[in-house]
Design a protein around this nucleic acid. Sequence first.
DNA 1: TGCCACACGTTATAGCATAACGCAATTGAT
DNA 2: ATCAATTGCGTTATGCTATAACGTGTGGCA
Lengths: 133, 133
Amino acid sequence: MADHQLTRNQNLVLDALSHADAPLSAYTILDKLRDHGFRAPLQVYRALEKLLEFGLVHRLESINAFVACAHRHDHAHEHGVTAFTICEDCGNVTELCDSVIEERLSFLATQQKFKTEKTTIEIRGHCQTCAAA
Amino acid sequence: MADHQLTRNQNLVLDALSHADAPLSAYTILDKLRDHGFRAPLQVYRALEKLLEFGLVHRLESINAFVACAHRHDHAHEHGVTAFTICEDCGNVTELCDSVIEERLSFLATQQKFKTEKTTIEIRGHCQTCAAA
DNA sequence: TGCCACACGTTATAGCATAACGCAATTGAT
DNA sequence: ATCAATTGCGTTATGCTATAACGTGTGGCA
Ligand SMILES: [Zn+2]
Ligand SMILES: [Zn+2]
Ligand SMILES: [Zn+2]
Ligand SMILES: [Zn+2]
C-alpha cells in the first residue's frame, strides 16, 4: 500500500475524523464541513468510500459511524482482523489487533468451508475512565 | 430464562423470521405481515425489541437485518458471545459459539479495563455452497 | 373503583445511504 | 495536439432504517 494522494474532499473528511474524539456519522461530518463548501451527503460518502478502501478510516457497523484508523500509515501497513472497543458513554474507540482471535476465526471459518471477505468485531461497553465514574 | 409467553405480534414476527431462509430487514418483515394486519414499522420494531431481549432473535449489525436464533429455547439457555457467518450470496447465516474467542475477547477487554456490555462478531463472505459455484 | 403496567395502533419525523444526471479536470494513448 | 477513458465533483431526488409522540384498550391488583 503506497501513500495515496488524497483529494481535497478526502483530506477534509479525514481531518474531521482525525480531530474528533469520538466516531462521527456521515451527516455529522457533513455539518462540520459545510463551511468548507460541503452541501450534500454524497460528498461525504464518496470521500469515505475511498478512505475506507485505503484503510485510513474504519466503519463501525454497530453505530453507523466512522473513525480514523489509529495506526500509522507512513509505511506499508495492512492490518488484519481488528476488534474495536467502543465506549457508549464517551465514544472512545480503541483498535485491537490480536493474532489469537484472527487465527481462531480463520480456523472456525475454514472448518465450515466459509470463505471470509470481511470480519467485524465490535465490543460495546464502558471504557476505564467512564466505568470508574 | 423461562419460556416467555409471546404476544400475537411477537409470534407473527418470530414466525416470519423462523421460516425465512435468510436474514430479514424490519421493513421486509412488515411487508410479509401486511396480510396479518401490520401497517406500520413500529409494530415490527416493538416486537423485535422484545424478541431480542428474550434472545429469540439476533440482530445482524453489518446488514441491518434480523434472524431467528438457531438454538433451542425449550430449556433455560443463554448463549454467550456468538460469531455469525453471513453469506453475501445466499444470505445463509450460521451461529458459532466458541469459548476460545469468548475468553480471548474477555481477556483483551479486561487488559484495558474495558467493561463489556455487548459484543458483535460478524463474518461476511461466501458459504461453502456459494463459494463452490 | 381507581390505579398502574403493558401491548397496541397511528401519524409524523428523524437519521442513514444511494441512484441518476451532468460537468470538469486529468491522464494517456494515438 | 486531439481524442477517449477515467475520475472526481456537485446537485437533486429518492429510498431505506429507526424512533418520537400521542392516544386507546385491557388485565392485574390495592
Ligand atoms: Zn486501523
Ligand atoms: Zn468512556
Ligand atoms: Zn442464537
Ligand atoms: Zn451462500
